[in-house]
Amino acid sequence: MRSEAAEGRTVIVSIEGLSKSYRRGNQIIPVLQDVSFTIAEGEFLALMGPSGSGKSTLLNLIAGIDKVDTGSILVGGADITSLSEAELASWRAIHVGFIFQFYNLMPVLTAFENVELPLLLTGLGRKERREHVEMVLNVVGLADRMDHYPSQLSGGQQQRVAIARAIVTDPEILVADEPTGDLDRASAEDVLTLMDNLVHEFGKTIIMVTHDPRAAEKAHLIRHLEKGFLSQ
């Protein structure tokens, strides 16, 4: 069940008493400690903090690619901490879109095939998949580059293909880990504008980890993490 956020918007992500630690030899290193907050639907949230503050770990936990020690994460009303590994994989395919710092496109697949990948996990037929892919490549302004391989595209274009891949299944949340970290200023600006459009025009919810203050400026809300604690 989705609850209403304070501003009256629907809460899409609800985190309660989240803790996570890593084991290094006999040592247990706490990464996140008792973190609780909510994210409203259609929000553009930036997670900031120094290296090792736990922001990427938090993002991975919300995206369902890492397991919590204690606490709960509700995404769209579903408690993802109770899902098995296989269930999480199916859940991610439908509900989460990933944007990585280094784009993480498959170098042997064309832009079209890269964007089509997540759709292969849905029941869509070939024709419907093509329509979806063409539509999102239009949204990111790369419809004319769909037959190009990643190596034939610039960094900014590759990140736009990665964004198209992230939104092609129309997921509830988009998680972005340093999406502008590998881009020059102009390309970074393009990518941030595109992400901003996704929020404003298509009502997407974006959770972004960044070190870049200019990237954080685009966000509606900035949350800081410090040594595993949410400071703001």
């Binding site: 995206a63 296989a86 395919a93 439908i94 990933f98 993480n104 498959m106 170098p107 996990l121």
Partner: peptide, 14 residues
């Protein structure tokens, strides 16, 4: 390795 991690993150199972 990164490609494998990405494919798994996208929802492809083991």
């Amino acid at each position: 390795i990164v490609e494998i991690g990405t494919l798994r993150a996208l929802g492809f199972n083991k």
